[in-house]
Amino acid sequence: MPEVDTHPLDTARKLAESGDLDGAATIFTQLAADPAEPDRAQAAVGLAVVLQERGDAPGARTAARTALATGHPEFAAQAACLLAQSFEQEDLLDQARGAWQAALGAGNPAYVPLAHMALARLAAGQQEAEEALRAALATADPEIASRAAQALAELLLEDGEAGEAAEALLTALSVPDVADVPRLRALLGIAHLEMACAEFAGAIEEGGDAETAALAIELLARTLPLRGRDEDAERVWRYGLDSADERLAEDVRLRLNRGA
């Protein structure tokens, strides 16, 4: 029976899988060095992986750049990701950001969500991080959109932007098969609590009749501890109890004692 002709790329891959990294690297190097080789991009990616496993980071990056330069829709994007991860491992963050941007530029939608999340992680400032997280959320990837919404919501809540946080979480929850729904809903509840606190505080500041003011004071004072703000809750109660409006102060006192 005649032998089946095996493509060198398959041979190199099998050698790598069997642990013969040197043999695989030799074949991958030959294929990646030939501009006319139709599998040059794939070979260069294979070479980058093998060299990285051998501990040759500079060589792996050179191979990844070769694959990236081909502009191949699949393997150029893979190469950019490998390049970025290599830079991250050595805390070369500027270079890593550039490589993740190259992954975006490759135009392969399969790598876009991952790249946006990486750029958010490596962002130089909060505004840059928020922009990258919004871009990751917009990809509607079930896993990445969930992670992006959670991270974005937490940043926005820290800045007092509960409404925007809620919008981001609702966007994620609208993604089909989105991951980690319980966590998204819990964060949405927190955002709603923050918005409720803002509304209660606004009602108190705007005045109005004593009954409404007392109700707003009670609701705010009982909601704040749910966000770990016990001292703020005490100040709200004290504000009502010390009011010059005797009717308001008495109504607040009754509400406080009712819950004691």
Rank of each mutant, 00 (worst) to 15 (best):
G55K: 12
C81P: 03
L104F: 15
G240P: 12
F87C: 12
D159W: 08
E231S: 12
P176W: 06
A36Y: 06
A249I: 01
A44P: 08
L193N: 02
P58C: 13
A43T: 12
G202P: 08
F200T: 06
A69N: 14
D251W: 00
R247G: 02
A106W: 05
V252Y: 00
M195W: 00
A64M: 06
R65I: 09
D39V: 12
E37I: 08
A216G: 04
D209I: 04
Q126Y: 02
D242Q: 15
G125S: 12
G202A: 06
P142G: 01
A106T: 15
E211L: 06
R247T: 07
A136Q: 01
L156D: 01
R238K: 15
G202N: 05
R61P: 06
E17K: 15
E88N: 08
H72G: 06
R134F: 09
L156P: 03
D34T: 14
A135Q: 10
A132N: 08
A136H: 01
A36I: 03
H7W: 05
E206D: 09
R40K: 13
G105W: 12
Q52G: 15
G19D: 07
G23I: 01
L31V: 14
R229W: 03
L68Y: 13
A132K: 02
E250H: 00
E90R: 14
V236S: 07
A110G: 04
A172P: 07
E205P: 05
L152W: 04
A191W: 01
A210V: 05
A132I: 11
A216Q: 05
D39P: 09
A162W: 02
R247Y: 03
L173A: 04
R227C: 04
A16E: 09
A60I: 08
W100Q: 07
V175H: 09
G228V: 06
R185L: 11
A102D: 15
P2Y: 11
F200Y: 11
D245Y: 06
L51A: 03
A186H: 07
G202K: 05
L82Q: 11
P176G: 11
V45H: 10
I190C: 00
P113D: 05
A64W: 13
A138P: 05
R227F: 02
A221G: 11
Q150W: 02
H72R: 08
L256D: 01
L187D: 03
L119D: 02
A63W: 02
M1R: 15
G259T: 05
P73Q: 13
N257G: 00
R61K: 13
A123Y: 04
L256Y: 05
Q89F: 10
A153F: 07
A213K: 10
M117D: 07
R13I: 07
P58V: 11
E3H: 12
L133C: 10
I27Y: 13
I204H: 04
A48S: 15
L157G: 06
I27W: 14
E206C: 09
D177P: 06
L169T: 02
R183C: 08
G228N: 11
